[in-house]
Design a protein around this nucleic acid. Structure first.
Lengths: 128, 128
DNA sequence: AAGCACTAGATGCAAGTGCAATTAATGCGC
DNA sequence: GCGCATTAATTGCACTTGCATCTAGTGCTT
């Protein structure tokens, strides 16, 4: 009856469970306390770490594991809240740069401790 | 400039990357080759492993990390394709049992090797 | 046995996502 | 310099998801 899953499948399930639990916690805490979704925070974080606080759209999409269309709309939402700004890239005018605003940096500053706290609380627990 | 992320955050990013890559590969392979989504496959797998090939809806929702509403609709879709069947639980008539059909079992048989192959190919690669 | 708090599941709705098609810009080959 | 394949981003659309709500059934309390 109870077919025991193969080790690879077991590992995948452990990882999925950990990922799901962490995402749920992040979504709730970041959302309630700062009005941010996970991807929103992730994009802000990448921009904070980036040279001159700006990055190409495609680059961000890769980093946060989103499709280019999803990233495009995400940048729309962030820009609507003045957390980032768009400007076209001079060397390749097809592309755009996404740049962190002061408000975006401030928002990151608020949210980063929450983010870190959730990870520190959730990750080690579920890895076990 | 380049603020180096904290170890906990790094671990989270590694896991996110691995999870995203694996999900993308699973979604593509299971979808193209068997017409199944990841959650579809996961539910079939849990039913195959379950006593008498049936389980309570809430139980499945917990196992595959979905909300009860998402699971309800997922069961709709699977039932529409005759991969599972619903029937009300006698001891508690609020609840339902979801039961694997022969077609569902066969579909699982087809898809399981693909699933395993993708995991074996993708997981160790990204864990590194 | 009547009322009431609680649980299981289904459904309306809004939000985020990916794919496919579109628009705009690049640069390679002739 | 002119097409043509390629790439970057945006937009239309369909799909899945979660939250809030609703309905139905349970069982505890009185």
């Amino acid at each position: 009856m109870t077919e025991v899953p193969d080790p690879v499948v077991e590992a995948w399930r452990r990882m999925s469970a950990c990922h799901a639990a962490t995402c749920a916690a992040l979504e709730r805490e970041l959302g309630d306390r700062h009005g941010l979704g996970i991807s929103d925070f992730e994009v802000l974080a990448r921009l904070v770490e980036a040279e001159d606080h700006h990055a190409r759209a495609q680059e961000l999409a890769d980093q946060v594991h989103l499709s280019q269309s999803a990233l495009s709309r995400l940048v729309d939402r962030l820009a609507r809240h003045d957390l980032v700004r768009r400007f076209t890239c001079d060397m390749d005018r097809r592309g755009i740069f996404v740049e962190l605003t002061d408000a975006g940096l401030a928002k990151y500053g608020e949210a980063a401790p929450t983010h870190h706290e959730v990870l520190a609380r959730t990750l080690p627990q579920t890895v076990t």
